[in-house]
Computed example of a mutant assay.
Amino acid sequence: MSQDRTTTLWRPTGPEELDLLRQADWRRWPPRLPEQPIFYPVLNEDYAIKIAKEWNVPHHGAGYVTRFEVDTEFLTRYPVQQAGGRTILELWVPAEELDEFNDHIVGPIELIHEFR
């Protein structure tokens, strides 16, 4: 993460979450389902692409990658989690904190890749 005012994050997603994101005018992530206690944005585009292609496409028929900016100072509350190799980096945002997390998104969430 940089010392800039915002930090760029990516989120691989499936069609259902993408539809909810559209309904929120590309400004807020939808609430988590009961079986989703954590919201996982990732810290690099390549990792997001890998998840979209290798998990979302086989399970949902399509995978998408979004990019968005979040207030850097706010993100300091979430330690970077290494979920595998050196570049497999995520933030773990508890579902009950997602509304506050959404309040710190700067600008719209962008759809940058689509895979089928």
Score class of each variant (00 low, 15 high):
Arg22Val: 13
Arg22Cys: 13
Gln23Tyr: 10
Gln23Phe: 10
Ala24Glu: 13
Asp25Thr: 08
Asp25Gln: 11
Arg27Leu: 12
Arg27Thr: 10
Arg28Tyr: 12
Arg28Phe: 11
Trp29Val: 07
Trp29Asn: 03
Pro30Asp: 14
Pro31Asn: 14
Pro31Leu: 11
Pro31Tyr: 12
Pro31Phe: 10
Leu33Thr: 14
Pro34Ile: 05
Pro34Val: 06
Glu35Arg: 11
Gln36Glu: 13
Pro37Gly: 08
Ile38Asn: 04
Ile38Pro: 03
Ile38Glu: 05
Phe39Asn: 01
Tyr40Ser: 03
Tyr40Thr: 01
Tyr40Lys: 01
Tyr40Met: 03
Pro41Arg: 02
Val42Arg: 01
Val42Leu: 06
Val42Thr: 07
Leu43Trp: 00
Leu43Asn: 01
Leu43Gly: 03
Asn44Thr: 06
Asn44His: 08
Asp46Asn: 12
Tyr47Ala: 05
Tyr47Gln: 05
Ala48Ser: 05
Ala48Thr: 01
Ala48Asn: 02
Ile49Phe: 09
Lys50Asp: 15
Ile51Pro: 05
Ala52Arg: 02
Lys53Gln: 15
Lys53Val: 15
Lys53Phe: 08
Trp55Ile: 13
Trp55Ser: 14
Asn56Trp: 11
Val57Lys: 05
Val57Ala: 10
Val57Thr: 12
Val57Pro: 03
Pro58Leu: 11
Pro58His: 10
Pro58Met: 11
His59Lys: 15
His59Gly: 12
His59Asn: 15
His59Arg: 15
His60Arg: 09
His60Gln: 10
His60Pro: 01
His60Gly: 06
Gly61Asn: 09
Ala62Leu: 11
Ala62Ile: 09
Gly63His: 01
Tyr64Leu: 08
Tyr64Val: 07
Val65Asp: 01
Thr66Lys: 03
Thr66Asp: 04
Arg67Phe: 05
Arg67Trp: 05
Arg67Ile: 06
Phe68Leu: 04
Phe68Tyr: 08
Phe68Pro: 00
Glu69Pro: 04
Glu69Arg: 09
Glu69Val: 08
Val70Gly: 01
Val70Cys: 04
Asp71Val: 07
Asp71Ala: 10
Asp71Thr: 11
Asp71Ile: 07
Thr72Pro: 00
Phe74Arg: 02
Phe74Met: 02
Leu75Asp: 02
Leu75Lys: 03
Thr76Asp: 13
Thr76Lys: 13
Thr76Pro: 07
Arg77Glu: 04
Arg77Tyr: 01
Tyr78Thr: 00
Tyr78Cys: 00
Pro79Asn: 09
Pro79Thr: 06
Val80Asn: 00
Gln81Cys: 04
Ala83Asn: 12
Gly85Phe: 10
Gly85Cys: 11
Arg86Lys: 12
Thr87Met: 15
Thr87Val: 13
Ile88Ala: 15
Ile88Asn: 12
Ile88Trp: 11
Leu89Cys: 05
Glu90Ser: 03
Leu91Glu: 00
Leu91Asp: 00
Trp92Met: 00
Trp92Gly: 00
Pro94Glu: 06
Ala95Val: 06
Ala95Gly: 08
Glu96Gln: 13
Glu96Pro: 10
Glu97Lys: 07
Glu97Asp: 14
Leu98Asn: 07
Asp99Met: 10
Asp99Ala: 14
Asp99His: 10
Asp99Trp: 07
Glu100Lys: 08
Phe101Ser: 02
Asn102Trp: 06
